[in-house]
Design a protein around this nucleic acid. Structure first.
Lengths: 342, 342
DNA sequence: TTGAAAGCGCTACCAA
DNA sequence: TTGGTAGCGCTTTCAA
């Protein structure tokens, strides 16, 4: 344990000063090619790997970034977003010698505390701001803390000092509604996410605008919480109304599947009696019957872009907002022409 | 940034030596109560938080542990195990001031390299060994590296120097088979996981033993890879045989659901024509119709126990293997009496 | 281009 | 019980 190879050993073996060894190893200029080669050889002979601890302390960087997932922990199970998102993050982080510190919080104030700690003990050099709230308190907190950050899928808000990495879903939702309208649907409902989320609002606005654009009146809106159960409840509510919507655009797949399953349970046929669409493009949507028409997002690509943006922000670069290619409509079996009686 | 409060400031304000401040703050003995109180007050006045970087370097600990998830990254999406497992880990880590470093690898040798790096640059103090293989090369690697570890859900292998944290599923699989046998099933098939996994084998052995115990002959075995698709393929294979099994015990829920959906697609009724059972207890099993009879595991509890074990191992304690309460049979709709003709 | 040395902020040893 | 002080292993001036 204590017999670890340090830069001192490397310098000694190469017959140079420690500072030269450091410069050589880190690709800094000011060392002759000969010296650099000798140092490199010595390092590889000795199997030298720099201690991240010492490096962190002296370089004043943690070489790690943080992701705080705020979620009632049981709910996380059903949310496949993070797996792929984290995969994308890791992909670029690993290449840069950075690591991901993953934290979990079940409530908002707990999450705030995690950010505070992460900053106070300097465990990370920057963080991801996922699932933004309207007037998200984390923004101001991180600004105060001076911790670099990137926001994920937020709108470009003027006051916010952090770059945003997004995948637009607006166009795809327009496509969804357009598809339904062309199929003859007139009463198109929406199952929304909690209003506090920026992306819930964006999806609802997109639905709203698309419906108007199609020359239709807005159907009823049910506000869920992105869970299967709330999709189920949405069906109970919307399908029991005197005049049923013939199509329901849901703000995520899990709610759409909950809705769909309950509709089937009520004896309705999909899409003959009611069309259902989701958002996300999770695998579950292909397991159910009928398979779910949805908007396919790219969490992995998003994660990679977010990581690149965050690393750039940490390096102090002036990073612009980035938009990855927009989400795409994927038409499957849960959408079709409305009942003629409607 | 540079104006960070350090222990020097705290010591100065409290009018004591740095070493005393350190001792006081860390609850070490050898400081008077009065001094300790003064130091604590000074620290809180100043909003002092120790720098993890300096602490790490001097204490020779990273205050972080690693989890390397080895998975074809797209597959991860559908696997809800890790969300809850990580939740459990985080729960105990956070309380101890430790953090979780999450890494991803898509192939085995890539994963090995991640462990090697984690150890070489000393990013973590220990790691979780999940999804153990038979003769897992990671064991020897970590032993060589001298990195503390705990194995998750492995068998107690004599040669392995790491404590194991497990949840037994054997009894529950016996219960599954017992249930089926009592219902009159005689041909009970198994959809297994890849043979290289320790837990695949354990589940298969449990099925095998339980079938024998029920006085039955083993039904056919299909080896899948824990994906929905492989469950689907299993159905294609097993249900097309001349003599169909009347019940199928799957090694995880995702395969069970794939099997179930395909069986339905083939026009079979469940459980009237064929009973299907899973293992894991994921939410998906309650979304499908019929709902899935399964063995419910507790990944969250497992994660918490694993984290406790790992921290103890890091502290150098001699930690015993721990078994959390066993997985439980959950009977739902996908099991019932076999067809009379069978 | 090279090397000596001063930190980075903390822990822990050893005298006092 | 207290207070110096020598590391921990690296980066980064600043002279030579």
């Amino acid at each position: 344990m204590g017999n670890r190879v340090t830069i001192v050993d490397v310098a000694e073996r190469a017959g140079v000063a420690i500072s030269s060894a450091s410069a050589a190893l880190n690709g800094r200029t000011g060392v002759s090619d000969k010296t650099r080669a000798r140092v490199r050889a010595a390092a590889s002979d000795l199997g030298y790997v720099a201690s991240l601890r010492a490096k962190s302390l002296s370089a004043q960087r943690a070489f790690a970034v943080g992701l705080v997932v705020e979620r009632a922990i049981d709910v996380l199970e059903a949310d496949p977003f993070f797996g792929a998102f984290i995969g994308g993050i890791e992909e670029v982080l690993a290449a840069e010698g950075y690591a991901l510190v993953l934290q979990m919080a079940s409530k908002a104030d707990e999450a705030m505390q995690r950010y505070r700690d992460l900053s106070a003990n300097r465990r990370v050099d920057g963080v991801f701001l996922n699932e933004l709230l309207v007037d998200d308190p984390r923004i101001m907190l991180l600004e105060e803390l001076g911790l670099p950050a990137v926001t994920i899928n937020s709108n470009r808000v003027p006051g916010v000092p952090f770059p945003s990495v997004r995948q637009d879903g607006t166009q795809a939702i327009h496509d969804v509604v357009g598809l339904l309208a062309r199929q003859g649907h007139v009463r198109i409902a929406h199952v929304a996410g909690p209003v506090r989320f920026v992306h819930s609002r964006a999806r609802r606005r997109a639905w709203s605008a698309a419906v108007a654009e199609a020359g239709l009146r807005e159907g009823p809106v049910f506000t869920g919480d992105f869970t299967y159960e709330s999709g189920w409840r949405a069906a109970a509510k919307l399908l029991r109304a005197d005049v049923r919507p013939t199509a329901v655009v849901c703000a995520n797949d899990l709610m759409a599947v909950g809705f769909l399953m309950h509709a089937l349970e009520l004896g309705l046929r999909i899409p003959e009696d009611v069309s259902v669409t989701g958002f996300d493009g999770i695998a579950l949507g292909t397991y159910v019957r009928p398979t779910l028409t949805t908007v396919k997002t790219a969490p992995r690509t998003l994660g990679a872009a977010a990581a690149r943006g965050l690393l750039a922000a940490i390096r102090g670069e002036n990073v612009a907002d980035v938009d990855i290619p927009p989400a795409q409509l994927v038409v499957r079996e849960s959408t079709g022409a409305p009942p003629v009686s409607a």
